[in-house]
Nucleic acid binder design. Structure first.
Length: 393
DNA sequence: GTCGTGACGGTTGAA
DNA sequence: TCTTCAACCGTCACG
């Protein structure tokens, strides 16, 4: 079994097979693309395969979101009791009705939509297995009397929150050609955890923001709550729609984050840094870095329950952090392979004009995204430059 | 050299 | 609790 710490791709980047890239990297890919940097350059710089860059950009263009899709789970059943009931009704009214006619009627009557209407073969199977013997009707009715009323048929999107074309179009940020745009993921007001502003994705809060309510940091999602999150908690896209993805996806992300950024050995970690994948310093005696202390983070050291361990006893990490092997505030020479993902946007973020949704500039977190081996060799070229341009990269 | 695409091996979570 | 299945992931190779 491959260690949970990941593998190294041909570009020298580290990834965990089967797991999505961290949001910070996904976001950075989109950022760089919108700055006009070619995908091949993004691929090399972030050490992410060009196929992945292409896929993430394509998804972003399609959905307006940088987030990966929902992983795992099963397709919702389309043959709900309601659907079966309607099929039965159609069959009773017209015993000679064809399956495809039933399918059309399910659509026409609004019983199903195009996402959850059963296939013709499914309808045929229902007719054969459940309705074929109408002598079972009395049994069915008897059974039905002892059952709760059938739930309305769930739309496919209810479970699978893929944004509808309309939602995607609405979420999409239209940008004049050549004009760097702030992705809609970055433009959303901060209403964590239902926001995907860049500050939320990266777990950054402005100093001003924290000063207002320093004693009440982020709404602190408990791991117990996160653990209960899943596809069952998906909501219709009309609710909490954020950037083409609704709350449920964010919840899933929260759960995913829980897996990535837990503290090893139940050590306290900075609650804020918990959401900063590249700023992991889960050691008991290590305070928050000065920049965090200045932001009041040191007041929010918190014990996070370890929730998941690899069979070898090491914490299961995703593609970002090698916490046990990484001392806090690793110097470039000490950066673990996982820090390969870490871009070096400190100067970039501080200078390129991003504004917090509330108008507050992002607070520069020197440890948010530390120096990266991915940019090794480029550092010299970037010295003295505070903007990301193709030439600087 | 760049980019889109499909195969592949992997993870995840609902059933 | 375990297994199955179908969704997703990123990498890689090919054209």
């Amino acid at each position: 079994m491959e260690p949970a710490f990941g593998e190294v791709n041909q570009l020298g980047g580290v990834f965990v097979n089967g797991r999505p890239l961290p949001n910070a990297i996904r976001l950075r890919i989109v950022e760089l693309a919108q700055l006009g940097i070619r995908p091949c350059d993004i691929s090399r710089q972030l050490r992410v395969s060009h196929g992945c860059v292409s896929k993430i950009l394509a998804r972003y263009n399609e959905t307006g979101s940088i987030l990966p899709g929902a992983i795992g789970g099963s397709k919702p059943r389309v043959t709900t009791p309601t659907v079966v009931k309607h099929i039965r009704t159609y069959k009773q009214r017209d015993p000679g009705i064809f399956a495809w006619e039933i399918r059309d009627r399910l659509l026409a009557d609004g019983v199903c939509d195009k996402y959850n209407v059963p296939s013709v073969s499914s309808i045929s199977r229902i007719l054969r297995n459940k309705i074929g013997n109408l002598s079972q009707q009395s049994h069915y009715e008897s059974y039905k009397q002892h059952q709760p009323p059938p739930q309305p048929a769930l739309s496919y999107n209810h479970i699978y929150p893929y944004p509808s074309p309309i939602a995607a179009a609405g979420a999409k940020v239209s940008t004049p050609p050549g004009v760097p745009a702030i992705p809609s993921t970055m433009a959303m007001p901060r209403t964590w955890p239902s926001s995907h502003s860049v500050t939320d994705i990266l777990g950054i809060r402005s100093i001003t923001d924290q000063a207002v309510n320093d004693t009440s940091p982020y709404p602190s999602p408990k791991v117990e709550e996160w653990s209960s999150l899943g596809r069952n908690s998906f909501h219709p896209p009309t609710q909490h729609a954020v950037n083409g993805l609704e709350k449920s996806s964010l919840e899933q992300e929260a759960k995913y984050s829980q897996v990535i950024w837990m503290a090893p050995n139940s050590n306290p970690i900075c609650e804020t840094c918990l959401f900063l994948a590249t700023c992991f310093h889960g050691q008991n005696t290590v305070p928050c870095p000065p920049t965090h202390m200045a932001s009041g983070h040191s007041t929010r050291m918190k014990l996070i329950k370890k929730v998941r361990e690899a069979p070898n006893g090491l914490p299961a990490v995703s593609s970002f952090v090698s916490a046990p092997a990484m001392p806090p505030y690793a110097t470039p020479a000490q950066v673990s392979p996982y820090m390969t993902y870490s871009a070096t946007p400190s100067s970039y973020m501080a200078s390129h004009g991003w504004q917090h949704a509330g108008g507050t500039p992002l607070s520069p977190h020197s440890c948010d995204i530390p120096a990266s081996l991915a940019f090794k060799g480029m550092q010299t070229a970037r010295e003295g430059s505070h903007s990301v341009t193709a030439s600087a990269l």
